[in-house]
Design a protein around this nucleic acid. Structure first.
Lengths: 221, 221
DNA sequence: CAATTGTATATTGGATCCAATCTGAGTTAA
DNA sequence: TTAACTCAGATTGGATCCAATATACAATTG
């Protein structure tokens, strides 16, 4: 009997699993900023030794999601107001350029997918799902730009501020406004107006940033 | 007797040291792309166990400088032509914006430092030092923009292509051209013309990218 | 009582050991 | 001949153990 070779190799290491789980927890705000991440504790949660945990923490630190002090440990990174401000400015620059590059190449299928994602965002009532719906809409459009490195950096910059952004969507009328802005961006894309899509995307991100900063200033004094 | 408190704590872990050394070796092109990085071998070089080596490799992978396959090991990352092309495009976008933000805030001291770095680059004959002199000139100017996150991403994007860029500076008249372009950028900064400095920086980076790509296409066929 | 010192415990950094997987040379069978 | 199989060595992934440091709290001293 001749069997096809089936690859049953495990593709994910323990390090990968721990990294992804912690990354998700930080991005979604389940781990509060400043919270201590004890190696032993995390290792027990994942039923592994501390080795994969430490490797995952190294990766997270490289992504700016945690900060480590030698012999003291690792805590969830806390961003200052000016750091958050800067990252929104960065995202506005990069994502507006990305949509400009994407618009001329958008296929009918990609536009249809964007419309569906737009709809999904509008219909999402669970605040915990807004973040993902938001990403789906924007990143779906960016795919057409065919710039994987740009997209990777865009993802990484959103990762750093996503937990704050989710708070902004939840605590204010941010989700409604985001939805209106998404519709305008989509319409510009549909028309093939790259410059307008870029301008709207830029304004969309800077708007969210300003709204978020006003919340933070109230909260932090 | 009252002594000032002196902090004799070791600030650098073995992981830090290994990471920095490997990063430098990759950026400077001492490790060829595709070269296998054996944990055992590196551990012996640094007189440590494999644990800090593995942690350093995790960081390097997160920065895109190496790629790892489970159970197979880690190799120095090799970029495709289109990846290199994209990163130069990314750098042109980001660094032109950075200099635009920097110019209005440039102090006399920063301009003087830039002039000195310009001179240093021009007088550097050792190809191995061009990379650093180049960074000193550009990043010195960017400091004035007071955007640490932008600068971090700029560094990281240059890290990925620096070894190719150094080859381009060495193998062609790249260094001479770079020097002329640096002088023009400096002059625009001195005049306070942010838009021109941005345009020149954009052209400077795209020029180097095009020159590099033509070399690569010859080499790789 | 306040400030300092000693000490026990928790936690991290690193070394060593074992298990899982890959690789490649030699062997066998169609 | 050539493709598949076997097995030993090399290499990576992970667990366990030990050392170095931090932290909290009791003890001590002025």
């Amino acid at each position: 009997m001749k069997l096809d070779r089936i690859d049953i190799r495990q593709t994910a290491s323990a390090t990968d699993l721990v990294f992804e789980a912690l990354r998700k927890a930080i991005i979604e705000g389940e781990l509060a900023e400043g919270e201590h991440l004890r190696q032993d504790h995390i290792a027990q949660m994942f039923n592994t030794s501390r080795i994969p945990v430490r490797e995952a923490l190294q990766r997270l630190e490289q992504d700016g999601l945690v900060t480590t002090q030698r012999f003291k440990g690792t805590v969830v990174a806390a961003l200052s107001v000016s750091e958050i401000e800067e990252i929104f400015e960065f995202r506005a620059l990069l994502e507006s350029e990305m949509i400009r590059l994407a618009v001329p190449s958008l296929t009918r299928e990609q536009l249809e997918a964007a419309r569906a994602n737009l709809q999904a965002f509008a219909e999402t009532t669970d605040p915990g799902s807004w973040g993902e719906a938001n990403r789906n809409f924007h990143y779906g459009l960016y795919e057409a730009a065919d710039r994987p490195y740009h997209l990777q950096i865009i993802r990484s910059s959103l990762d750093r501020v996503d937990r704050y952004l989710r708070a902004q969507l939840t605590l204010t009328d941010g989700a409604q406004r985001a939805n209106r802005e998404h519709m305008a961006i989509f319409e510009a894309c549909r028309k093939g107006d790259a410059a307008e899509a870029a301008d709207l995307t830029r304004a969309h991100i800077l708007d969210a940033g300003r709204s978020l900063l006003s919340i933070l200033e109230k909260r932090r004094g």
